[in-house]
Every structure is written in C-alpha cells, then in structure tokens.
Design a binder for these strands. Sequence first.
DNA 1: GTCTATAAGGTGATAGAC
DNA 2: GTCTATCACCTTATAGAC
Lengths: 200, 200
Amino acid sequence: MIEKNTEEKIVQAAEKVFIEKGLAGARMQEIADEAGINKALLHYYYRSKEKLFEVVFKLAFKSFVPNLVKAFDGPEDFFTKIERFVETYLNLIEKNPHIPIFIINELSKNPNRLVSLISYLNIDIQPIFDVIEEEIEKKTIKQIEPQELIINILSLCVFPIVAKPMVQTILFKGYESEYNALMKKRKSSIAQFVISAIKN
Amino acid sequence: MIEKNTEEKIVQAAEKVFIEKGLAGARMQEIADEAGINKALLHYYYRSKEKLFEVVFKLAFKSFVPNLVKAFDGPEDFFTKIERFVETYLNLIEKNPHIPIFIINELSKNPNRLVSLISYLNIDIQPIFDVIEEEIEKKTIKQIEPQELIINILSLCVFPIVAKPMVQTILFKGYESEYNALMKKRKSSIAQFVISAIKN
DNA sequence: GTCTATAAGGTGATAGAC
DNA sequence: GTCTATCACCTTATAGAC
C-alpha cells in the first residue's frame, strides 16, 4: 500500500462521506476521522465545507458524464455501439453504484452546480445526434428525436440502480440475489430492448 | 380558503420543506415558519424531527407507489393498458415532480424505511406479473421477465424527471421549453417505444 | 393549545502553539 | 503542515407561563 499524501487522503475521505451522506448530511468531523486527521487540517487545505464539496462533486461528475459521450465513438455498426455502450456504462455504474444518485440528488437541490461544470468540461453531444440522425436517414431505425433515444437508453441503465431499494423490495420480495441476477442480464437485454424498439 | 387546523398546517409545511430540502437539509425552524407557528408546537404534535419526517415520507410514498399497481387494472387490451399507465403516471409526476427524487434519495440513505411501509400498505404486484405472463403465453409479446418489463416502463417515466437538470442542460442547451416539449410528447411516445420493443 | 425562553449538544471555522 | 483549544453560531428539544 502506497502512502498517500494528506491532500489525497482528504479528497478520498470526502468522496466517501459526501457521496454516502450528501452535502447536507455530511460532517466535517466524519471526513476528518475517515482521513485520519483533524478538522483544522481540512480547512487548511480546502477553505470550507462547500469548497471541499465542489471538488468532490466535480470529480464524481467527471467520472460519469463525459465517458458517456466517448462510448458512442468508434467505427462499429450502430446497434453494436448501443450494445457496447450499455455494457460499458453498466459496468461503470456497478463499480460506483452510489454516484448516479449522488449527482442527481445534489443537482436537484442546486442545479447551478452544472453551469460551471459544463463550460469547464465542454461536453459536446452533437456527434451523437449526428450518428442517430444518419441512421434515421438510412432507414435502419425508425423516426425518433435523438434526444429522446439518448434519454431512453440512459433511463434504462440508470434508473434501476438509483431505485434499487424499491425495485429489490417490491419486485423481488427483498432478495438481493434475484435483483443482481436481473441486473447482470440487463447488460445485454437493455440493448436488445432498445434495438427492438427502434429497428426498422 | 378554508381555515386548516394546526396539525394539517404542520404536515403541509413539513411536506414542502422536507421534499425540497431532504431530511438532513430541512430545519424545524423553517417548517414552523412555513406553517406560521413556532417550533415548540411542532414538538407538541410530533415528538421529534424524525417522527414528523416519517409522517411526510409515508404520505409521499403512498401517493406514488400504490397507484402504480391500480393503473394496471381494468379490462382494456394490454397495449392500451401500457398507454394509459404511462399517461396517468406522467400526469401524476408532472403535478408532483419533486416527490420521486425525494423518495429515491431518502430510501438510498435509509432503505429500512421501506420495511415498515410495505407491510403497512401491503402492495401486491402479482396481478401485474400474471397479466404480463398471460400476454407472453398468448404470443402477443416477446419473452421477457415481468419484473424487467415493469422496470423498463418505470425507468422511461421517472428517470427524465429526476434527472431534469442534467437532461435540460446537456441535451437541450438549458432550454426548458424544449425539455417541456419533449416531456409532453413522451406521454404517448414512451408507450409506443415499449410496445415496439415487445410486440411480436 | 400556544407561546417565550432556554437548555444541551452539535457544527463549521479560526487562532495560535509546535 | 499538523495539532489542540476555542469561538460563535445553529439546531433539536424541553420547561414553564398563559
């Protein structure tokens, strides 16, 4: 195990606590404990709770959203792209299952956080729109708004994860193993569902 | 305007503040102000913040989840049921757009809240499973796990609402009018998408 | 039932020694 | 850079008058 410097330890501890508890529920004391230091040092490196939160939020956002655009790059056939995207994205979410709800919730409480991030990351989804519209013109898929197709794919990937407690309890009588089994199947079945829906 | 009694005023104020700020972010003082009373009275009627929150959470949950089951009742043709369900549910969400993220987020922070609710509301989704399996047997729709079909429909309805800030900013360059236009279209297009995906 | 006042303990942030 | 001690304020909850 490599010895991390203090700044790294703080960010890592802050990620854990903020993502688990949210901005309002997190405590600077808990972050300090998690990092194995004291509160004063937190304020020495990051001036305030809000500033430290912004660092964590930006990291979480960066790890999820821009990859989305990249996954639609590549030379494959359109349907293969969808298959690959779903699998890649579900694997990413599987490794960090609490990040989507963290981002969604903090943005719903303060949508302004996006403004600075968007210009900073300069996400450009026009290429994805172009690819979809091209397929529509080629008549390989049915008429659909590019935005709507993207929303549909994302919905099917993200919602079952963020709503896991409800899905598992209500649809699977609380059995996590059955929930997990379906989530594993979905790595391929989501793409099949989408392709069936749009194929001409 | 009918004069409400104190208990009603408190619950209504608590709903507003808790749903907007979440359990951790809400303040008893703000709820008291919103209700036009003082903090002491809050504790007189509901012993603690947690107890008051439980009342609000139960109300929010009750207003959303059980209706879901009822919407799949009725004599119509299966595809019409899906159409009617999506439209009904989207109208419900449109009127209370912050409740889904509230429920999802508070459950992700404390999944135990579900346990008491489930037995209390005794939600039985078996009838929906039966309807779906019947359609599969009749070969009107493709083979699919009933749970997965339900998840897919719910995902398409709920996700775009809870992720509104992101969807609006990234997919619609921030224009709320374009976001709203698509959401309006989705009252029918979600069902069409699902039906295309499963139809035999 | 409703209020004012206050207790009791947290919470973010800083001062100052080392 | 890192620590202890402490400030100033906030927050839930209760006591007690009316």
